[in-house]
């Protein structure tokens, strides 16, 4: 009888063992610049990468992107991105211009005079007053931070939400070449974990 039991276990073992665990692809597709990951729609402002695991006293660099659909025919003239962070945990070291305000006389401003708040203004300048298409994600700015204390913090685009996708108010702005406001639908904040 023991032999039969042993065989039953063997068969069960075979049945259970001959399978591979495949992690669901949707769970692994976590690129913050992937348009399908933006829940509230496009255009959107997003941090990439959106997760940082740093050691206290260490620095890290994060990028801010303007995202739009690959089929979008919308042209943009400028962006204002306002980022909030906890100054007790992070310190801004450096801001670099991205690809939007490109050229010989770029119009790129970064104001970090208010503690825990960065205001970035980037304007596309062209001779014919045309704008820039964002169907392939445009880098607005590159930010370098220093981690000051352990714990989690969020790099947050300044806004007030009614619920997850309804924006009540925001300091961030997106304009077309004629300076007309274009609503920003999505925001991809960044999460910092300092240890």
């Amino acid at each position: 009888m023991k032999k039969y039991l042993f065989f039953s276990y063997l068969v069960s073992f075979l049945l259970l063992g001959c399978r591979n665990d495949v992690v669901d692809l949707d769970e692994e597709l976590d690129n913050p610049l992937d348009a399908t990951q933006i829940e509230c729609g496009l255009p959107a402002l997003a941090f990439s990468p959106d997760r940082y695991d740093v050691a206290v006293g260490g620095t890290f660099i994060t990028d801010i992107y303007l995202m739009d659909s690959t089929e979008s025919e919308q042209w943009y003239g400028g962006v204002k991105a306002v980022v909030n962070y906890n100054p007790e945990k992070l310190e801004l070291i450096h801001i670099n211009n991205g690809d939007l305000a490109d050229g010989s006389a770029p119009l790129f401003f970064a104001d970090d005079t208010t503690v825990g708040r960065i205001e970035i203004i980037s304007i596309f300048v062209s001779i014919d007053s045309s704008g820039i298409n964002s169907s392939n994600n445009i880098l607005l700015a590159e930010l370098e931070f220093l981690s000051l204390a352990a714990g989690a913090d969020t790099l947050l685009f300044e806004r007030t939400e009614n619920d997850s996708c309804m924006i009540a108010s925001t300091s961030c702005e997106l304009v077309d070449p004629n300076d007309q406001l274009i609503p920003i639908r999505g925001y991809g904040d960044g999460v910092v974990n300092a240890q």
Binding site: L29, D30, N31, L33, D34, A35, T36, S48, D63, Y65, M67, T70, S135, N136, N137, L139
Partner: peptide, 15 residues
């Protein structure tokens, strides 16, 4: 490659 991609077309290609 997908995680490192920043260009939307590349991201779509890798997806």
């Amino acid at each position: 490659k997908y995680r490192a991609a920043t260009v939307a077309d590349s991201i779509k290609k890798y997806v």
